[in-house]
């Protein structure tokens, strides 16, 4: 599919779907269910607000979403208590599929949500969004409800970074612009049309989610794009402009770790796809530097991008699917 044509036909603004009554009617006609998954780790400042707004607007007033679940990596603050108090279903990731050795990482929570949640569509929304609004959900599920051929909807933003004197209207997306878009431009030019490939907010059909592997760390979003693109092509994607997303700004060193994890995932995909031939075994230690008593010293971080297999390969999941697609676990 031609990139410009795709940009025109598959790029939306959330306001296109603001008529929630109409969206709910269409969803009911289709007879589908939608689950909202919020992966968390110590998000007590924002989780209460997120649950209240989504429950009120998208469950009570307009039954667009059938369940809201918080899947937590082991918060040490009040995240789970607050989420539960305001009516979300709360789970510890390690309690889901307990027979499988637990791993820690956002991708693990997203993967286990496929098993735990019931919806035909799962919407993933990060918990650290300061300016949360129902558009974060309806803007993403809208294209899936209206266009059956679309399988994966990604958010993009005019991203302000939060700073002490309010917000400024641009910035952010440094890893995208410095790493991902150049890599996509080199190897998968069509994917560079995805404006915010690393955004943590997306809505996906179950049949897609259950059939793709999940890196548990930084590479999960990148691997999704590559895997869905390889199997279904660019036309399976849509993207929605959700306006602004106010969130914590990450220091450059953290972005270095993120980039290291993403590159591991990217190269392992390139190798599997035979795009660049055999890749030697990749190092898993990232070295950064700091100055201590006027001496440079190395700080080493071991970052291993482990991967979960497609959920459909997990026997417990297949049993669950066999016992009924809408059965709550």
């Amino acid at each position: 599919m031609e990139m410009n044509k795709w940009l025109k036909s598959n790029t939306y603004h959330h306001s296109t779907f603001r008529d929630l009554a109409e969206l709910v009617e269409k969803k009911q006609e289709l007879g589908i269910t939608i689950s909202l998954c919020i992966p968390t780790l110590n998000e007590q400042k924002t989780i209460g607000k997120e649950v209240v707004i989504f429950r009120s607007e998208l469950m009570q007033r307009y039954p667009l979403v059938d369940e809201i679940a918080v899947i937590d990596s082991g918060s040490t603050d009040q995240t789970l208590e607050i989420a539960s108090n305001f009516g979300a279903d709360t789970y510890l990731a390690s309690d889901i599929l307990p027979e499988i050795e637990p791993k820690r990482g956002k991708g693990e929570n997203l993967w286990k949500a496929i098993y735990q949640l019931k919806g035909d569509i799962i919407v993933y929304i990060d918990a650290d969004i300061k300016n949360i609004h129902p558009r974060f959900v309806y803007g993403l599920v809208g294209p899936l409800i209206h266009r059956p051929e679309i399988k994966y909807v990604k958010a993009f933003y005019d991203r302000p970074l939060a700073f002490s004197q309010g917000t400024r209207p641009s910035g952010g997306g440094r890893v995208t612009e410095i790493l991902i878009r150049p890599l996509f431009s080199l190897f998968f030019p069509e994917l560079s049309a995805i404006i915010q490939p690393l955004s943590g907010e997306y809505a996906v059909r179950r049949e897609v989610l259950e059939s793709i592997p999940f890196p548990i760390g930084y590479g999960v979003e990148t691997s999704h794009l590559l895997d869905v693109y390889t199997r279904w092509g660019l036309s399976a994607f849509a993207q929605t402009d959700l306006d602004q997303r106010v969130h914590r700004n990450q220091p450059t060193r953290s972005l270095g770790k993120m980039s290291f994890g993403i590159i591991q995932t990217f190269f392992s995909r390139l190798s599997k796809m035979n795009v660049i031939g055999n890749v030697p075994e990749l190092n898993t230690v990232l070295r950064q530097f700091q100055v201590h008593d006027q001496e440079f010293e190395t700080v080493e971080f071991k970052i291993v991008e482990e991967e979960r297999p497609p959920m459909i390969e997990i026997p417990a999941y297949r049993d669950r699917v066999a016992s009924g697609p809408t059965e709550a676990v």
Partner: peptide
Amino acid sequence: SMDHMVTIVP
């Protein structure tokens, strides 16, 4: 210009 972020806790 001030941060208008709202927090809800029980």
